[in-house]
Nucleic acid binder design. Structure first.
Lengths: 194, 194
DNA sequence: TCGCTTGCGTACCGATCGGTACGCCTGTCT
DNA sequence: AGACAGGCGTACCGATCGGTACGCAAGCGA
């Protein structure tokens, strides 16, 4: 779960682990700092010494989740060097695969954007930046393919992934996963030059 | 904003209007009952006399939003009788058009599902039922088209609409709207017989 | 052994949450 | 006029929120 253990005390590390677990399961706003402290078995002040506030902890969590997602581009590049189409499929498959994890609750970043509707809120601003970065990487990858309108295709794929993650929550995980890869293939095919 | 004014006192009606406005703008959990009462200019007890609790008020709000969405199927049927493809495009265009409303914050029902991650919560259960109903209607409509796999197509379109609504929040409203109709057309075309 | 720093938990803070006890005020029927 | 019923707001409730003051205990060099 993306542990960038940068100068964290033992108690701080336990807080971090508990926070990631609880945030992933219930969202951010549903989890109180007292619950995080109790779950991790440390006192609240240890939370505030290692992270300045609940908001900062939330930002760290969201960023950690995001880098895990962004890494998939690098992983795909190394898995299928030179074959950009295979890389794109790899990235999409990663999103589809993630839906299989027990208690899957959709894209953490997208969910956090909804939990923090105020665009001036620091957590929301982090979310918006991270979402933009993901789309940028996806567009860069798609632009390497022989397609007519790479930006449109990238945006369409982004929407598909977003929607599949959301649908997995109130519809079927399995159908969402299957539909995502199937639809992505159809869309990609419709954009590929011949 | 879908006023099913069933036996609501004047004060209750003001509460209802204020609640719809605030819930739409900030989400449900971000809005306290005190804020609703203050905005509507009535006391809190009037809220609790007309609606039993904040949860019941939230359920009423979510249902009202949902029926507004479900009505679009009927509207489409009357606008283009006999032409199911045009009806489908009509329904999709309605979702796309809704994104243009100022302060658009994505699909209310989907957002509420994220705000209430506990599937046993009454608000969440209402959300899940309403989402299922929407997909059912969409599937019924798609099944009238000469397509190979109507259920798959309906689910794909659902995911597209879901994703476009989400993307409109942290990306561009205009791109999300344009991409939704464009992608839907491509997907539909790829499923149509010949 | 002393004094000091460091890391930590207990117990508390004010603010806000959803929800309610209670009384006022008005219109109506007698 | 007087008794009554309904719709309403003030002022409060306990619980929980994020955040903090403070003191204890362990490890260190002298």
């Amino acid at each position: 779960m993306a542990d960038d253990s940068t100068g964290r005390s033992p108690a701080g590390e336990r807080v971090w682990q508990a926070a990631c677990e609880l945030f992933s399961r219930d969202g951010i706003r549903s989890v109180g700092v007292a619950e995080i402290a109790a779950t991790s078995g440390v006192g609240k002040p240890s939370l505030y010494r290692n992270f300045g506030s609940k908001d900062e902890l939330a930002v760290a969590y969201v960023k950690a989740q995001a880098v895990a997602g962004l890494e998939s581009f690098e992983v795909a590049r190394q898995a299928c060097p030179g074959d950009e189409l295979a890389q794109l499929r790899h990235v999409i498959a990663r999103v589809a695969g993630e839906m299989g994890t027990p208690g899957y609750r959709g894209c953490v970043i997208a969910n956090t954007a909804i939990e923090f509707s105020d665009r001036e809120h620091p957590v929301r601003q982090a979310v918006d930046e991270l979402k933009a970065e993901y789309l940028r990487r996806l567009t860069t990858l798609v632009a390497r393919l022989p397609v007519r309108d790479p930006e449109a295709l990238a945006y369409t794929l982004q929407i598909l992934m977003e929607g599949a993650g959301a649908a997995a929550q109130f519809y079927s995980v399995e159908r969402s996963r299957a539909t995502l890869v199937e639809a992505a293939d159809r869309i990609i095919a419709s954009y590929l030059r011949q």
